[in-house]
Nucleic acid binder design. Structure first.
Length: 601
RNA sequence: GCGCCCGUAGCUCAGCUGGAUAGAGCAACUGCCUUCUAAGCAGUGGGUCAAUGGUUCGAAUCCAUUCGGGCGUGCCA
């Protein structure tokens, strides 16, 4: 990474200066410091503010420190530096250094931005997200969790972690009982065994049940299970519930797949934690009991959560004997730890934050390390149309579910808008904007940049019609010539850019604004791996979408100022190498986010 | 009441492990298509960074308090 090379150079310089006794009281090189981007391009390409940060410890004026560092700095490797009050060191890279980094894009192509796994120890991550109950379709909130979760999983993979993703199926307990009641009634109503008025009040909405329990579907399943002898009047409630559960899981899987959310594992609570002969919930209660962290009160079993930082104790087994959600959740988390992951990431809806102290406390109580568990809370989503909030009411036929939104705006827009939002901010999804097909809509804006770059390649290597003579002319570059450029020349040539943009003898004048756009674009492109690392470290996929918007804007600017076709050979190659690099980086970033990168629009 | 999250341009948001004049996009206005996609580019206007106090050479960024909004505060999940 460019940053590492520069920082290492500065660390060397500081070490030498300390050795020479020229940095006052400073004794050791700071372990990390930032390489800042210059807001004002007149300052340079990058800036370092380490001199000001060292001032106190060294007991020296920042500007003196900066000057001393620069004295020992082997800056010829990267370009030139200037010291500016109060103590900034500004860097301007030379073309050789830029190109040495730039060619990596061409040689690594679709893996440019993927970071080296070997640099990570403790890299096995289990990320659990969505985990909706199998009792209904997925609503917008689930959609946001699904998209942000999958984008984060992908981001972490790019950053070199070993990522395993999981959906926890809450298929045991009271909600399944409620589902069974609902499913039975929904079937019986459709078979006219009971009347619609007899649908239980506390059941899941009838409308949501008949979405999956269609006569042709449940009739087929029942007929198979019961060898054709279906008695709707005395329908087995458990069987009805089982059928509904499986259909909802099937529906959820399909909806998620349609928005490019796929899990490595669907973890069934019932099958993994509640097996009669190996009941993990009982086991966890035994462990807590043995550690002296349980007590009985008013017929219920309580976990001493307050002792572990919660605001009060929590019931783990109700007085009627049923275990609470927390009991299974502790067992589930123990299972996760036991599978040997270094880090567990849970993505939960923001309304569940009250559960955090409970689960953390329990993990402490069973002597597992709670610091290895990370919780990410995702706040609510609302819909907006023409600046007015859309109330989500199923009755009025408004959008409430993920599949409906996806049908309305498409997968790419749905994913982009959600990824572009920060998890802990509430989100307003703008339906009109997401459907727009112009630059107002960032998805199109970015995809269009990619398509434009692709079109340059297409035009270069295809036959052309002369406008004046209407005659066909041969392509500017042959298919094989283009292939060679892309696969060999761009990967190895280290002076294409320098010659084209730095040479005073160039026929075509390149003005300073134009050159600035080119430098900024190149620096941003080179910065992609760094962007991946930064985003992964703070678990923020939106950083990638922000990065993409910026790259797209720079590319459009570049495209307008720099024609590729119809200029000198040298200039064409230089500009083409930039267009191709832009195309690679945009495609990689979109790919990371699960959004398509069209060749043509 | 207590706990968590949020408050930056008219709107949607970046910037938050302190650094140089606080940035985009939308909306408003003005230019640019005989040349690789105008699904684009360039330009103009717009701010007490919710408020107050503190720490610092330096605060949108850190700390404290206040105000405003959301969520949570079950023997629900």
């Amino acid at each position: 990474m460019l940053k590492d090379k520069v920082i290492d150079l500065f660390k060397d310089a500081i070490a030498k200066a300390i050795e020479a006794g020229e940095l006052g009281k400073l004794e050791k090189v700071p372990s990390q410091f930032e390489l800042d981007k210059c807001k004002n391009p007149d300052h340079g390409d990058r800036a370092i503010s380490v001199a000001m940060k060292l001032a106190r410890e060294a007991k020296m004026a920042p500007i003196k420190i900066a000057e001393t560092i620069v004295k020992h700095l082997d800056y010829k490797q990267i370009g030139s530096v200037t010291v500016v009050p109060p103590g900034f060191i500004n860097i301007i890279f030379d073309w050789d250094f830029l190109e040495a980094n730039f060619v990596e894009i061409h040689s690594m192509k679709d893996s440019f931005g993927k970071l080296d796994k070997s640099q990570r120890s403790k890299n096995k991550i289990l990320i659990e997200y969505v985990s909706a109950n199998p009792t209904g379709n997925l609503h917008l909130g689930h959609g946001r969790q699904a998209v942000l979760g999958s984008a984060l999983a992908s981001l972490l993979e790019w950053a070199g972690y070993d990522v395993f993703s999981e959906f926890y199926i809450n298929d045991a307990g009271v909600q399944i009982d409620k589902l069974s009641v609902s499913a039975k009634a929904a079937i019986q109503i459709q078979e006219a065994v009971i009347s619609k008025e007899q649908y239980p009040d506390d059941a899941y909405p009838f409308e949501s049940m008949i979405e999956i329990l269609k006569p042709e579907i449940y009739q087929g399943i029942l007929s198979e299970k019961l060898q054709g002898k279906i008695d709707y009047k005395n329908l087995d409630e458990k069987l009805a519930g089982e059928i509904a559960k499986n259909l909802f899981i099937e529906l959820q899987t399909k909806v998620l797949q349609d928005i490019e959310v796929v899990f490595d594992n669907w973890f069934s609570e019932k099958e993994n934690l509640h097996q009669a002969e190996n009941n993990k919930v009982l086991e966890i209660c035994g462990i807590l009991e043995k550690n002296g962290n349980l007590y009985e009160q008013e017929g219920a079993l309580w976990f001493k959560a307050k002792h572990f930082g919660d605001e009060r104790d929590r019931v783990i087994q109700k007085s009627q004997g049923v275990y609470t959600y927390l009991a299974a959740d502790i067992a589930y988390h123990k299972n996760k730890y036991d599978r040997g992951f270094d880090k567990l990431i849970n993505i939960w809806g923001g309304d569940h934050h009250g559960q955090e102290p409970g689960i953390r406390g329990a993990i402490k109580a069973i002597n597992y390390d709670p610091d290895r568990l990370e919780l990410i809370f995702i706040q609510m989503v609302s819909l907006q149309k023409n600046g007015v909030e859309v109330k989500m009411s199923k009755r009025k036929g408004d959008i409430v579910n993920v599949d409906e939104l996806m049908e309305e705006v498409g997968k790419d827009a749905l994913r982009f808008f959600i990824v572009d939002s920060q998890a802990n901010n509430r989100m307003v999804f703008d339906l009109e904007l997401a459907k727009k097909q112009d630059k107002d809509n960032p998805v199109y804006y970015i995809q269009y940049a990619h398509a434009r770059a692709a079109s340059i390649l297409r035009n270069l290597s295809s036959k052309r019609i002369n406008i004046e003579s209407s005659k066909e002319e041969k392509a500017i570059i042959s298919e094989s010539g283009l292939k060679q450029l892309l696969e060999q020349d761009f990967c190895s040539a280290k002076s294409i850019l320098g010659r084209a943009f730095n040479d005073e003898e160039q026929e075509e004048k390149i003005d300073s604004d134009q050159l600035q756009t080119i430098r900024t674009l190149i620096l941003e492109l080179i910065d992609f791996p760094e962007a991946v690392l930064d985003a992964a470290e703070i678990r923020a996929p939106y950083k990638i979408s922000v990065y993409l918007k910026n790259i797209a804007s720079l590319f459009h600017q570049f495209y307008n100022e720099n024609r590729v076709i119809g200029v000198s050979e040298e200039l064409m190659q230089a500009r083409l190498s930039i267009a191709v690099a832009s195309k690679i980086v945009i495609a990689n970033a979109l790919n990371l986010l699960g959004i398509s990168a069209p060749e043509k629009m």
